[in-house]
């Protein structure tokens, strides 16, 4: 009987070291990145953008530059052709004689 009491007493004396005081803080801090990823933030948006256009993706950057070049080139061509059409119209109206006009003895 006495042995049982002593046995229980010894079991209860089992030591557990003190927990580090900053353990809770460390856990809470470690959980933070996940919170930032779920919501939209301007910083996160900028990070995503910089990840897309940063140097380690030269192929993507080249494609973007090429597409921009082709687009601006097409804009220039179409504007130029419109100007040309207008100019041609003006010239022909200037050069071609209008027969309905009475030019008198010169005819």
């Amino acid at each position: 009987m006495r042995e049982d009491v002593l046995f229980d007493a010894i079991l209860r004396e089992r030591h557990v070291p003190e927990m580090p005081t900053n353990l809770a803080y460390r856990i809470i801090e470690a959980a933070k990145p996940r919170g930032a990823e779920t919501g939209f933030t301007w910083t996160a948006f900028q990070r995503v953008l910089s990840e897309i256009f940063v140097i380690p993706q030269p192929a993507f950057a080249m494609v973007v530059v090429l597409m921009l070049g082709v687009y601006s080139g097409m804009q220039y061509t179409s504007e130029q052709s419109m100007e040309m059409t207008v100019a041609r119209a003006n010239l022909s109206s200037f050069v071609v004689a209008d027969l309905s006009v009475d030019y008198g003895e010169f005819q």
Binding site: V16, A24, I28, A31, G35
Partner: peptide, 22 residues
């Protein structure tokens, strides 16, 4: 996804579960 609720849970129970793990 409430971080503050998570912080309260951690602070409330970390000691007990640390002892259990030990």
């Amino acid at each position: 996804g409430d971080q503050r609720a998570f912080a309260v849970i951690v602070t409330r129970h970390v000691k007990k579960f640390h002892a259990a793990a030990y």
